[in-house]
Design a protein around this nucleic acid. Structure first.
Lengths: 157, 157
DNA sequence: TTCTATTCGGACAAAAGTTATCCGAGTCAA
DNA sequence: TTGACTCGGATAACTTTTGTCCGAATAGAA
């Protein structure tokens, strides 16, 4: 079980985009985080498809957040990049083999699937409770002011 | 994000093993669930390494649970087969790129990693709350008695 | 209005992880 | 002692993920 590594990049990009008022290009975001420019573009594409960011083409173009930072949850980003389908998918094992339960008797989901769904919901609920704004607040609290100032300056240039 | 499909098989095997008092071979478990015998053996190996089941060699050998069904949680099985490491792994992006935060200032974990860890804990806690015995109780409640009787008979043979 | 530089978007390979399989070492029962 | 049956680890095929590239479209400058 492993989530796409692009999720981490996507979250960092959202934080950075929230700080900059103007569109930021994928190249700049890649340089900022020291990651592959081409691959980061793919993640930004996914964020764009999900409607979390809006892309502007041509000169002085780039990406901008479509909503306020406190209106974007971690779950939004995770689902945009990693997909919405749950980690566990029931293959209805009980309906196979010599002791197969007939499909008509399987009106309620398998207890295994139910427990897994419950855990998945707990996970998603936890991610939904945190927003990009929360991350930014935390960063502002723990990062030295001089570094924060430098970051804004660098993004603007 | 997707967990190993073997987890489902492993859980079904635990339920089946709990019902049978005698050792059950991998071949029989594979036939019961109509899955690849060779591959199921691999999952049983993982359960064995984790100490959830004990294997007996030779004639009339097979697998047996090492603990009572109410002492085995879903988390135990998931971690045995899918691994214990969390889905999200922080790569310390903040320490890279032109605005890298020096490692000495990174005493507290990145807020992204903290939120992900929290969600992961919620997920694991939810899985830890359910035991194999709970699954069995649910199956006993929802499955027609005639099918349950047939299952025990078939396992014994 | 034309042109040019710059942008994103989707199509195209490489790598890793997962799935599936086989055969040998060891063991219990007869 | 024999013999057949068991699991365990080492070995291939496949799917998913990761990473890269080039073309279509756009906004601004001349």
């Amino acid at each position: 079980m492993k989530m796409s590594g692009g999720v981490e990049w996507g979250l960092h990009c959202c934080v950075a985009l929230s700080g900059a008022g103007a569109p930021v290009t994928a190249a700049k975001l890649a340089e900022l985080h020291d990651v592959s420019q081409s691959y980061l573009a793919k993640q930004l594409q996914l964020l764009s498809r999900a409607g979390l960011v809006r892309s502007t083409l041509g000169q002085s173009g780039g990406y901008v957040l479509t909503r306020a930072a406190n209106e974007i949850t971690l779950l939004d980003v995770v689902e945009a990049i990693d997909g919405v389908q749950p980690a566990f998918r029931c293959t209805e094992v009980r309906q196979r083999g010599p002791l197969a339960v007939p499909a008509e008797r399987c009106d309620t989901p398998c207890p295994i699937a139910r427990a897994m769904d419950s855990a998945d919901r707990a996970w998603r609920e936890s991610l939904r409770a945190v927003t990009i704004a929360d991350l930014i607040a935390d960063v502002n609290r723990t990062t030295p002011p001089e570094i924060l100032a430098g970051a804004r300056e660098w993004l603007r240039a």
